[in-house]
Simulated assay, not measured.
Amino acid sequence: MDEANAGTGEHLTPEQLHGLIWQVWTAYLGVGPQIGAAPDRDPNHAEITASVCIAGAWLGHVVLRSGLGAAAGIAAAMLDLDPDGVKPDDIQDATGELTNIMAGNVKSLLPQPSHLALPQVVVGRASILWPGTRLLGRAEVAWNDHTVTIEVLHGDTPRL
């Protein structure tokens, strides 16, 4: 972040986002991921979308999008399961929790007080929109032949 916007949540550098992703992936999935710029593609390609809203002094969302294979890999690693034994509920729980952990780490960079909502997980290709938001940061995470996109969206502060 530049000095003028430090602590305002207006900027999230790629380095900050990549660092948070690396910390979470290594701590919770036990692997060091490859992290890079995500291609600008239709977000509706995802087979699973998990999001957590951050509200308070800062408003926005952390969003995880992936295919079902990647989501099953997340569930197997987080829940210490055999990849062949992963069930749909495991996938939803693990992707929601991983997104929640990412959101908590993003929140640590934001103005306080800010609070996390419960994770929301949508399974299936769907047009999921967050009106009144703009993309603050996006990264693509690759590991074990899987790819996941992490996005941070900044919401407009409501005018009263």
Rank of each mutant, 00 (worst) to 15 (best):
G96V: 08
H115D: 14
N105Q: 15
L20K: 06
A75G: 05
G69N: 14
V106I: 15
G85N: 15
P119E: 02
P119A: 00
P83G: 03
R65I: 02
D90P: 06
Q120H: 12
A70V: 07
P33C: 05
A117Y: 13
W130A: 07
M102D: 02
L64W: 06
R134K: 14
D89M: 09
H115K: 09
L129E: 12
L110Y: 06
I54L: 15
T95S: 09
T99P: 01
P119T: 00
V62F: 12
I101R: 03
M78S: 04
R134P: 01
W22L: 13
V31L: 12
S114G: 12
R41V: 15
V63E: 04
D82S: 06
G19W: 00
D84I: 04
S127L: 14
I21Q: 01
L110H: 05
D40T: 12
W58M: 06
T99A: 04
I74Q: 07
Y28C: 13
L109E: 02
A76I: 09
A77L: 13
P113T: 10
E47H: 08
Q34P: 00
D93P: 05
V121D: 01
K107H: 06
K87M: 11
P113D: 11
V52W: 04
V106K: 10
W22R: 13
K107F: 08
A27E: 09
A75I: 10
K87E: 14
V31N: 07
D89A: 14
G69H: 11
S51A: 13
G104A: 06
Q23G: 08
P111S: 10
G32Y: 11
I74D: 08
G124M: 08
L116F: 08
H115C: 02
G19F: 00
G69K: 14
G19M: 01
A70Y: 09
G132L: 01
V123K: 08
P119S: 04
D93H: 07
V121G: 02
A57H: 03
G85R: 14
L81W: 03
P111W: 05
A38R: 02
L29M: 12
S51R: 07
P113I: 11
W58Q: 02
H45A: 13
T95I: 10
W22I: 12
L81F: 11
I74F: 08
V86R: 07
H115Y: 11
L118N: 10
E47D: 12
V24L: 11
A103Q: 09
G36I: 02
V86N: 09
T95D: 02
Q92K: 15
P111N: 10
H61G: 02
S51V: 01
L20G: 00
L29K: 05
P119R: 01
G73C: 12
T49L: 08
T95M: 07
A71I: 05
G73T: 12
N100Q: 11
G85C: 12
G67S: 15
G69P: 09
I101Y: 06
S66N: 03
K87V: 09
P113K: 11
D89T: 12
L118A: 13
R134C: 10
L116S: 01
D90A: 07
V122A: 14
I91L: 11
V122H: 10
